[in-house]
Structures are given as structure tokens and as C-alpha cells.
Amino acid sequence: MKWSAKIITHQNEKRIAVYFEKTPDLIARIKMFEGARWSQSLKCWHVPFTDENCIRFKIDIPISRTPSAEVMVQITSFQYYLKSKRYSKNTIKTYTDALKSFLVFFDPKPANEITNDDVIKYNNQYVLANRFSASYQNQIVNSIKLYFSSIQNKAIIVDKIHRPRPEHKLPNVLSKEEVKTILNAPTNIKHKMMLSLIYSCGLRSGELIALKPANIDSKRNIVLIQNSKGKKDRIVTLSSKILEMLREYYITYKPILYLFEGQKSGNPYDARSLQQVLKQAIAKTGIKKPVTLHWLRHSYATHLLESGTDLRYIQELLGHNSSKTTEIYTHVSTKNIQQIKSPFDDL
């Protein structure tokens, strides 16, 4: 989804205006945001002005009060620490924004006097009062814990900072027939190749975009995924059918640096353009589900499980640190559930 966004005041209320090409698919997506409304006078969709939406639409979060010099000293120290630990730019921005709102909330109280009771107060009077999600609260907790455990001499007990109760959401999974329909929809070989590789290797979209021709080992039938989430490398199996498609693609496009390049040679394919490729494919299929690229990864893992692949191997293929993360696919696999007979059939 290609879009731009800015902060506006509409009917005496601060909102975030979102501008994008008005297609039925994108309009359906924006409607999914809580509080999204269309303005006839402004000719745009707009969503509530919240920290979450600022992060979602890449708008710098305004701080209600100007941070004091002491707060900025703490933020700068935290940034230096994160950079030295080689955190990504996005993580550094997310963590420092979260910490800034936390420290400004208590300013002028010194950071080394903040206690666990203050964290509870912040959660109730800021996070919950603004109806921020559990995932956003988790981001704040991550930032606070890392800051107080690494930078600040404190009265706070880091291990006692509690997280919100976890949400137990099941991954979204497509049937093999739906996946096949989606992968066959694009007529452009590059578009078909990208979507097929995501599903056939269980890749994250960022991993696909970062692939280079050298990552494809045709002799061993593997793909080397480098520096993925958690700065880990891993290998995944390469389908023989995918290998044939890759050879045809390579002859046609002759990529220079990245396996999938954008309009300018040597530059990686744009992440938002990749999302648009999927949306265009979905539009051709008639599938009404709000499919995302990550659904293809979920479907890959579930289909492996249903075909009898050991959960430990699936964990390695997906690059999960914990087997508990991978075990969630046992809850969406229909292999055994479909064998259960409903008592309704005996009535």
C-alpha cells in the first residue's frame, strides 16, 4: 500500500489524514482501522491521532511537553547503548520514542527515583487511558526494562515490571487450493516468483527482499537466509519447481546485486510494492479474506505440519528461537481435527 500521512485538525479534533490511491481493496483495508472515517471536504480518509497510528503511519510522535535537558541526556545515552549493541534503526526509534514518553510523563522526577509503582501508574494513566494495544504496551515494557537494566542506576526492580496478559491469537492460514490460486494469479514472472518463493520457503517479506543471487545454492537445493530477524542466519530447502522458475526469471531479468531489484538496478525491491503485488493477485482471485504476505509464511508452516514434517524441523526452517512459537501451528492444523466426527451427525 503506497500512502502518505500527516497530522490534521478536523472538526476541532486532531486526526491523521491518510492519502492513497482509492481502490476498493485499499479502502477496505483503511476501514479496518478503528475510528477511520472519510472526509468529503478534505477528500481523504483519516484515523484517530494516537501513538500507535503515528508509529503505523511513520509520523514522529509529538511529545505533549518539551523534554527537559535531563530527559534528553538519558535518551541520548540510551541511543548510544542501542547503537553499540547494533539494534536496527527501526528498533532504536521505537524504543527511544517509548522511553521518551515514559520519562516525560514523570518529569521532573529523576529517573533513578522511579519505582515499580510508577510503572503501574504510567500503564493506567497513559497506556490504558489512551486505549493503546497490548502489543504497544509490550514495546514500552521492552524499552523500560532495557533502559533500567543497562543504563540507569535505579530504585526500580526490572524483573518485577509486568507485561500485559498475552493475547492468544491463531495465525491466519490459507488452504493449498487458495495458495495455488494466488500464486497463479500474477502474469508478471517477477511477481509470481516473489510470491512463490515466500510460500515455498516460508520467508518473511524482508528476507525475500534482502536475498541475493549468491544465496541460492542450486547444487544443494537450499536457500541461505542471512542476517534475518534476531540477526540470525538459517538455511531453508529449495523446491525443484522453484529452482526451474528461478532460472527462467534470472534469464529474463538478469539481477545485478539483489535477486529481486526495483526499477533501478542494484536497489532492492520496495517493500510496499511487494505488498501491492499480493493485493493485485488477491483481487484477481476473488478471495475475500484480508490476506497479507505473512499469511503465506503461516500457510507454509501449517502445510508442512499437516504433511507430517516434525515440528523441530519446522522451527529451524522458520528461524524461531523457541519451540513454543512454532507450536502455535498445531492449533490451526486440520489434519487430525477433520477426522473427528461431530455428534450432530448421529442425531
Rank of each mutant, 00 (worst) to 15 (best):
I242K: 00
R220G: 04
S88A: 14
Q74A: 13
V71T: 14
L318T: 04
I337Y: 03
T94F: 01
K121N: 14
G206V: 03
D346R: 09
R297K: 10
I156R: 00
I216T: 08
K190W: 06
T91V: 04
D233C: 09
M32W: 01
H298V: 02
N116M: 10
T91P: 04
D217M: 09
R272A: 12
G230C: 10
Q11L: 13
F49L: 06
M194W: 05
E316C: 08
A210Q: 13
D107T: 11
G319E: 09
V291Q: 00
I7C: 09
P62E: 14
E13R: 14
T326R: 08
P166A: 11
I161A: 05
Q276M: 14
F106Q: 03
Y80I: 11
Y199K: 03
N188C: 12
Q263F: 04
K176S: 15
Y95S: 06
R297S: 01
N184L: 08
S333R: 10
Q280M: 12
S133R: 08
K176F: 07
F33E: 08
L195H: 03
Q339V: 08
R65D: 13
V73I: 11
L243T: 07
K180R: 12
N336K: 13
A69Q: 14
T252G: 00
F102N: 01
T181S: 14
L296R: 00
V277L: 10
